[in-house]
Amino acid sequence: MNRRLLLALAALVLLVATSGCLGFFGDDEIPPDRLDGNVTGEYNWDADADVSINVSERATYQAVYRFEGEELSLYRSDGLGTENPLHVEAVRYRYPNGTVINGTTLIERGGTIEEQRDAVLVEPPADAPDGQAGQLAFTGQSTPKHFSLPTFVKGSYEIVLPEDRRVDVPLLSSTRPNPDRESVEDGRVHLYWDDVQRDAISVRFYLERDLYIFGGILGVSALVALVGGLYYRRRITELRRQREELGLDVDTSDDSGRRRPPGM
């Protein structure tokens, strides 16, 4: 009996471990075709901010992080607060001297890009100079009209929204935290934060045409309410007139001055 119990427990532990719930055997390598995939456009290596994020119309984004240290942990939290590894592809690393290498070369040079149970762990190549910040760039997946990501690096941020997207109407958009400044360049909104210390940054935006659709809906709703109000007011007026014609609106609220009938 004890032997069967031990075998059952061992099987249970093995099942949980292989599913990644305990983190055993949880590390995995990102496939080379995803790790070194092609970049749509170019990464913004020369941005003034510590973190530059370019959000595209295809619900993807390109992020460039300036970091100096031993490692960078990339993750995303779900609705229950559980941390999961961030989906990354087309990884690039830029040395302080401007040399750019792909993810596979970074690993070959002693760096690390490892998808663990709860995060993607990135370490710079072994030949990266000490005391100087390199840059890590990758492409990730977002959602339409909403970008949200933990702040893996504290400092200044720049987020560029897709063309014709705006954040001016509170009912249709929001930013957390509020940006320090905003500009529009070539039809694209640029949001700037001088020093982000919060755990996450989030931007909800809208298409300019959404504003016209929203305004049209409000206009139609207001017109329907106005027509309905006029209709019911007219009906009330007609009913009141009919009651008066039938003599149903006789005021009997004050008859204290009248004499009582005989016998009362």
Rank of each mutant, 00 (worst) to 15 (best):
V196I: 14
Y157T: 09
V227W: 04
Q62W: 01
L14R: 04
P144S: 04
S52I: 10
F152H: 15
L5Y: 07
V120M: 07
Y65L: 15
L223C: 11
T18S: 15
F147E: 04
R165Q: 07
Y212P: 00
R235Q: 15
L106Q: 08
L191Y: 01
S142L: 05
R176K: 10
Y93E: 07
R176M: 12
L207P: 00
D50V: 10
E163K: 00
G79Q: 13
T252F: 08
L22Q: 09
N38K: 07
G187S: 03
E238R: 12
A90Q: 08
A90K: 06
D186Y: 06
P162T: 00
T82N: 14
Q62N: 06
E89T: 06
L35M: 10
S52F: 14
R233A: 13
S19A: 14
A119C: 09
A10K: 02
L211H: 01
I201Q: 04
A126V: 04
A133H: 03
P150H: 11
R258A: 12
L171S: 14
E114H: 05
L106R: 03
E42P: 01
R66H: 12
Y75P: 05
M1G: 14
F24H: 11
W45S: 11
A222N: 04
D194I: 06
V153A: 02
Q62A: 12
L72S: 08
G219F: 15
T237S: 11
S253W: 02
D180Q: 01
V51F: 13
V203P: 05
T252L: 13
L149R: 11
V167H: 02
D251N: 14
G219Q: 10
A137D: 04
R165E: 00
Y232F: 14
F138M: 04
R181M: 10
D27C: 09
S256T: 15
P85F: 03
R188Q: 13
R234M: 08
R240Q: 06
R181D: 05
L230E: 12
V184S: 06
R188H: 06
S19M: 14
R92I: 01
M264A: 10
D27L: 12
A63W: 06
F147P: 03
L136F: 01
I159N: 00
E244A: 13
